[in-house]
Amino acid sequence: MNNIELSDSKLVSLYIKGNEESFEVLLNRYKSKVFTNIYLIVKDTYIAEDLTQDTFIKAIKTLRSGRYNEEGKFKPWVLRIAHNLAIDHFRRKKRYPTIVMEDGSNVFNTLEFSEAPYENFQVQEDTKKKLRSFIEELPENQREVILMRHYQEMSFQDIAESTDVSINTALGRMRYALINLRKKMKQHKIAYDSNIYPT
């Protein structure tokens, strides 16, 4: 299926008529945005995995039941489901705090972040894991602006409004985030050309 030509509303319409492939296209189109949106709130990769699954399952249930009435607006709709589920979790977590390790990480959150698809790409995957860990180590406001700009494709103006700061503050946070990441990459000898794209 050509996912460039088909709009969200067309894909939704096809899915409701029974075309499974169209949902796969929607899932691939929005999986990263939904996941990042949730992660920004819950700040735990494994809870974000679970809530991403819950989000899409809730979307499927609504689409299957015929209650979906936001044709053409799939993206804000599915992101709103994700946001609400993440907020619900956050509120529950406040009532039932999780056990944390000495370094502050969740006691259950010790597995890999994502699955490496092929052994041949292990070197690249290791580098990517390191980069993700560098992002995790950034101060929260710098990490947040990276996630919003890179993975949610928000403009700096949108980020400023969403985080209730001036656009210059948002830009400044991004600049420091990039400088800090660069420093960490240098310290760990991660070079863009030689490791990400090995020859």
């Binding site: 999986k31 990263s32 996941f35 990042t36 992660y39 974000a48 995995e49 991403t52 699954q53 994502s114 690249q124 990517k128 980069l131 993700r132 992002i135 990276i146 996630l147 890179h150 993975y151 990039l178 990441l181 660069r182 990459m185 991660i190 863009y192 990400i196």
Partner: peptide
């Protein structure tokens, strides 16, 4: 650095 970030994915 920005180009390197584009290689990092946050996906389920």
């Amino acid at each position: 650095t920005v180009a390197t970030l584009s290689e990092v994915s946050y996906t389920p």
